[in-house]
Nucleic acid binder design. Structure first.
Length: 183
DNA sequence: CCCTGATTCGC
DNA sequence: GCGAATCAGG
């Protein structure tokens, strides 16, 4: 993938909007979060709103050699200054995607299994990753719409509970259960 | 373990 | 310039 003007612009927008590098990478497609971060640095738009933040000097690896046989010219490495960083990292000011706190609900299946439905984490489309439950909750047309957001096993789009609903065995004859889903 | 951004350096 | 590897940290 190449960094076209459009992609760079989108990157800038999403980054300043406070999205994480991995989220931006997903949004852009064809790039990893490392690529995004690298580009962000090259564009010099790293510190997302941290006017007076002291630069954080990071010492990397003490090791002198890597598997490639790289040698670190330790003498030429920039030395840490005496400055005491006020804050490390810029994650703190990252704007919350969800301003509204929703009362959490517990739902139960009504079939008698007495299975507890996971608490909704109010995940949005941008919050979802490879291993967050993508079970939709609520009316997609509503502001309140969100996803389950529970951790799911690798490669499985739903959490344990919602997998059961999603992948009900077809052979279980007359096992129909009216399930209260969504909110 | 999942995630976050930061950094280095071979390409 | 690019981004994988690797780091430190939550």
């Amino acid at each position: 993938m190449t960094w076209t003007d459009e992609r760079v612009e989108l990157l800038k927008k999403l980054w300043t909007d406070g999205l994480s590098a991995s989220q931006i990478a997903t949004e852009l497609g064809g790039v990893t979060r490392n690529a995004v971060i690298g580009k962000v640095h090259r564009l010099s738009l790293s510190g997302r709103a941290k006017p007076a933040a002291a630069p954080v000097a990071r010492a990397r690896k003490p090791a002198a050699t890597t598997s490639n046989g790289r040698q670190m010219p330790a003498a030429s490495r920039p030395q840490p200054t005496m400055q005491r960083p006020l804050v490390a990292g810029n994650t703190a000011l990252k704007p919350l995607v969800q301003p509204m706190a929703e009362p959490r609900r517990m739902l139960r299946a009504t079939g008698g299994d007495d299975v507890v439905v996971p608490i909704s984490l109010h995940a949005t489309i941008l919050t979802l990753t490879e291993q967050t439950c993508k079970w939709p909750i609520g009316d997609p047309n509503s502001e309140d719409f969100h996803f389950c957001g529970q951790r799911s096993n690798s490669g499985i789009p739903y959490c344990e509970y919602h997998s059961r609903i999603a992948y009900q065995p077809v052979n279980d004859r007359r096992r129909e259960r009216k399930l209260v889903v969504g909110a």
